[in-house]
Write a protein that binds this DNA or RNA. Structure first.
Lengths: 340, 340
DNA sequence: GCAAATCTTCCGGACAGTCCGAATCATGCC
DNA sequence: GGCATGATTCGGACTGTCCGGAAGATTTGC
């Protein structure tokens, strides 16, 4: 018969102290006599006491927010960037939808906030969140490098829903671009395509640390039967540049973000999907029906909610010691720009 | 002045019922009169009641486990592979150490099991785990593709601590090889190294879907001032092959797993660290002091424990609908094989 | 027809750890 | 001696859940 697990109260009784003194002592509060604190800590070690992190999280929240009880509200922060491309709106929306759905399942609620330019300042955000008793934050993808280092992170737990954030270094959740592109290329190879071409905007590749082009090159290197066409990586989408590249290297299937490339290919005499193919590497940016990769923003949003809520349940706030990246491979979707 | 948020107790008082009846009613317990339940639910909606998810999780766990000493036991499964290289033993040990430490923090305990060859069969494992009431499983890295699809996954939550597992498709936790190598190369570039060379065993690159070589190529592509030497990727570590490659391409710094390459370089006339450098891309495989990347198995183990325990606390078992990969960048470590 | 058994519905106790105001006691100063 | 100050400890209140049992209604058995 195993002995029941020691609790604050049983430990207190053992020591002839009150549960509060024991609690304060274990957390190193200056309100207790150092000698008492030491005695308590030793007794805790010997009794094998382990504090229940869930209870800790609950009580800390409950006591701190005095009255306006913890209601599990999470903030979704949108960076109001004027130069962000419009075509990422669908992706954003789906991300928030997944976030919302999963958070609701787990008993939390999402509220959206806008920061920068048309939105509030970071300092204002800090006081808004603190007065509302919100301490879980999801940062929606930003086009440029976001900076929220001015927030008082000791009070918050946060997740960024894109590859890299340095200010501060938080856990991130994002698509597995590398693996997604690799499996798309593998699928195309089994269907007989031998001259895949990649068309990217430079900024899109750089912000992912070249993961798109790296996967493309790695696939070429490991598949000798595939023609190693050089990818076209340009500063801006440009018809003339694309067509020069297309005519010169003659890809049979083009992979890229910009669906309008289909028109440009057809203007060069290619027939899509009869003779040539086009594959979108982010279907949420498409402006017309298309085959390609669904990067699954909805599932990413759900996963972000889980990650954040797990932190809150462990009562973990602040910048993580070892920030991690959680990735999800894309899902292949058939479409009219590729013959089956 | 905002009204205080409604709680179970305030709602119960309003309705003239006890807090337990209200709680049961809101969770659809068959113990309450359906008419009462409906009345409660309507009142809750009108009052805008939202249950505190933290308190819910805590109490649910508390009541269910009825004062047992620990909240649960997790299984760490080791695949007993005869052909696994010996040099991964340190990495394994550190991984388990991190797992154990974090699990203990969170009120869980780790027990190790061995499967295959010298260990038990998968079917035997299934019955052992079920009879012991264990339902959280961490799979330690396997050299070949592990197969645990025969386990009755409806009862288990699992995490694999390496890149890819297909049988079944679980969440995984592993180093971010791509990002680690990229930042190591960037660091070397800022220190003036211009001819980095990569030396890999083929199997090591393939099981990571070419992430090592892809990062190496991506770095070369994006840094024109760096000489793009071809990586040496061989079936086995081979001195003659290495030296031929070294003499021909003259790398000034070599990155790889196999520290013995330092001897081979020196036999070719290179002086390490005076004129040339060597960087290990997995310091836990080193057989002598060395500069390089610590892939942080301890932190990975800790993260695996968190991921698994979060699933258990949400009461989620079975194969996840969308398996994700959680990665952690390596940490740069100085050493005697590289001048500062 | 009435006691006993069964079922329905609701209630109360116990539980976790935290925070802050209040209580208690010792010490210093005039 | 009286009062202010400081050091230390304590108690109350807080969240939602589970289960044993109370109270009352209904059915069963003879």
């Amino acid at each position: 018969m195993p002995a029941p697990a020691p609790t604050l109260r049983s430990l207190a009784k053992l020591l002839g102290l009150s549960r509060t003194t024991v609690s304060d002592a274990l957390r190193g509060s200056p309100r207790v006599d150092p000698r008492t604190a030491q005695r308590v800590q030793q007794a805790a070690r010997e009794a094998g006491y382990r504090r229940n992190p869930l209870a800790g999280a609950l009580m800390s929240e409950l006591r701190r927010s005095r009255g306006s009880a913890f209601h599990g509200v999470l903030a979704a922060i949108d960076f109001n960037e004027p130069d962000r491309p419009q075509d990422s709106a669908t992706y954003h929306r789906e991300l928030v939808a997944g976030l919302d759905a999963r958070a609701t399942d787990l008993g939390f609620k999402i509220e959206r906030f806008s920061v920068g330019h048309a939105g509030v300042s970071v300092q204002r955000l800090d006081s808004i969140l603190q007065s509302r008793g919100i301490n879980g934050i999801v940062l929606l993808p930003a086009w440029d490098e976001p900076d929220l280092s001015n927030l008082d992170w000791a009070r918050f737990a946060g997740v960024y829903t894109d590859y890299i954030i340095e200010r501060p270094r938080l856990h991130t959740v994002c698509p597995d671009h590398y693996r997604s592109l690799l499996s798309a290329l593998q699928l195309l190879a089994t269907r007989g395509w031998t001259r895949p071409g990649l068309y990217l905007q430079k900024h899109q590749d750089e912000r992912l640390q070249y993961r798109w082009s790296a996967a493309f090159r790695a696939f070429q290197d490991s598949h000798p039967q595939i023609r190693a066409l050089p990818p076209l990586i340009t500063d801006h989408f440009d018809r003339a540049e694309f067509q020069a590249w297309f005519r010169r290297h003659k890809p049979d299937v083009v992979l890229g973000h910009h669906v309008e490339a289909v028109d440009w290919m057809q203007a060069c005499g290619a027939r899509v999907p009869a003779t040539h193919g086009f594959v979108s590497i982010n279907l949420h940016m498409k402006t017309r029906p298309c085959a390609g990769l669904d990067l699954q923003p909805r599932a990413l949003g759900a996963r972000s909610a889980e990650l954040l809520i797990a932190q809150l349940q462990r009562n973990e706030t602040g910048i993580p010691e070892w920030p991690t990246t959680t990735t999800l491979p894309g899902r292949w979707v058939e479409g009219p720009t590729l013959r089956s």
